[in-house]
Structure formats: C-alpha cells, structure tokens
Amino acid sequence: MIDRAPLIRVAALYKVFGGDPESVMAMVRDGAPKDEVLASTGHTIGLRNINLEISAGETFVVMGLSGSGKSTVIRHFNRLIEPTEGTIHVDDVDVLNLSPTKLEEFRRHRISMVFQRFALFPHRTVLQNVAFGLTIQEVPKEERDAKAREWLSAVGLDGYEDQYPAQLSGGQQQRVGLARALCTDPDILLMDEAFSALDPLIRSEMQDQLIDLQNRLRKTVVFITHDLNEALRIGDRIAILRDGELIQVGPPDEIVSKPANDYVEAFVSDVTRYRQA
C-alpha cells in the first residue's frame, strides 16, 4: 500500500535561526555541533541536512523531544517557515520556489494542518470554522456549509454547528480542527502534536478516530508527536529527530527491534517496559 512513488521529497534541508543564517552555513555543513555554533555565532541550528521521502497514503510520524526541530520541519512543508537551504517537492511542485499566489493556491487545495493548541477561530461558529478553508477559496455559502456539515458529522460532532469553540471541550475542539483540515479535501494533512494537549483517554479515542478515518480516506498524513506509543500506534513509518538531525527512519517494528543508537534505544526501552507492565 505504500509502494507508490514518493509524494513528498525533502532533500538536504537546513534551517538556521539568527541574524545572518547564510554566514554560518559553511560551519553548519561541516558538522559543527549546535552548542558551538550558538556560542561562537549566536545562531541556532533548527534543522541539519534533513532528507526524507514520504509516500502517498502513508501515515508518517516525526518523533522527537521538544526542541528537536519537529515542529520546524513540518512547517517547511507548507512554508510557514522558510528554509535556509534545501529543496522540498510535492509531486512535481517545487514548494520552495512557489510565488506567493501559487503558494496560497497550494495551501488552499493540497495541504492542510491541525495544530497542537487547536487554533480555532474564536469568533466563528463551529460550522464556520470547519468551512474556513472553503470560505477563503470563495466557494458559495451553501456548498461550503454542506461540505462542512458532512465533515462535522464524520468526526462525530453533529448538532454542534452553531456553538462557538469556547463552548466545546478540548477533544471536541480538536475534532473541529480535524474537520476543518479535511474540509478542503487536501492530499496532505500536517498534524502538529495534534493530540498532545488532550487527556490520555480522549487522546486514544482521537487516535482511533484518525486511524479509522485514514483507513477510508488514505490521505498522506505527516504526524508529529513526542509520544512513542502514539507514534507506534498510528505510524506506517517513524522518523526520529534529535537536535535538528534525523537519527532513524523506519517502520515501527524496526524502530523497536533495531534502534539505531542509544538515544532511540532509551525511547524504546521506555515503551517496552510500559507494555510489559
């Protein structure tokens, strides 16, 4: 099911934060450690030489502790963050060379995003939130409302159309976030720690719902998490990120059985202990 040509191709992606990132690129490419670059130039390495291929229909999990650069990497896919160097292709679209108008088109139709802290529009009703992407595309009201109702019902929120986000619980809000992202019918769904802010029970419920939806929809999902259990549960493949560098990429069983180094092993041992208990 994931043997098609890669949909997303990331090559030699670097991101350096600071006043003049270009000036320190030579040092970064030579592999100078993060602390040394920060101490001598005041620049922070966000990502270093990221190479990834993600297939259509795959649920790809990017994992790492906070500060590992996982939120940075996902924001490059829809260019909420501009890279310092590197290329990103989606199909044959060269994402980093899109003009502003083309980039807006790309974000409207091909890629959408679910946020850790929901980021719903507080002044819009649930229905208007879900229909937001279509509103931006200037789809007629009746059509977009019908679509939004469909997706609200798909995430199990029938009857909440006219509520405001503040009236919903966290789990319900994130369902709205998910429906909002799916409503534009994108190829790619970016989920930035989408379930991390939820209670454990609600979280596993949401994971089930995502797996369920994914079995029907076969979107390309890029999911970010710091929770290996979550990664193992929903991921077709998992990438492990540390200090802006990719440590290991592989299917869940491979990550567990053949951890690439001590860092990954430490993660995994935690999980195995948890599972035995």
Binding site: R107, H109, M113, F115, A119, F121
Partner: peptide, 27 residues
C-alpha cells in the same frame, strides 16, 4: 490577535487581505 490563530489562517491559504478581514479585524 493570537499568533496561532493567524498562523492557522495562513496555513489554509488566506491572503494578507483575507487574514485582515476574516480574522484580525473581527478579533
């Protein structure tokens, strides 16, 4: 206006004008 909310509008392909009219001014 909450930066997360503005980022969400941008991520859905809103132009600067749409961000202003649909999100920033109402909030």
């Amino acid at each position: 206006v909450d930066r997360d909310v503005l980022e969400a509008a941008t991520a859905f392909g809103a132009t600067r004008r749409q961000c202003l009219i649909e999100v920033q001014l109402p909030l």
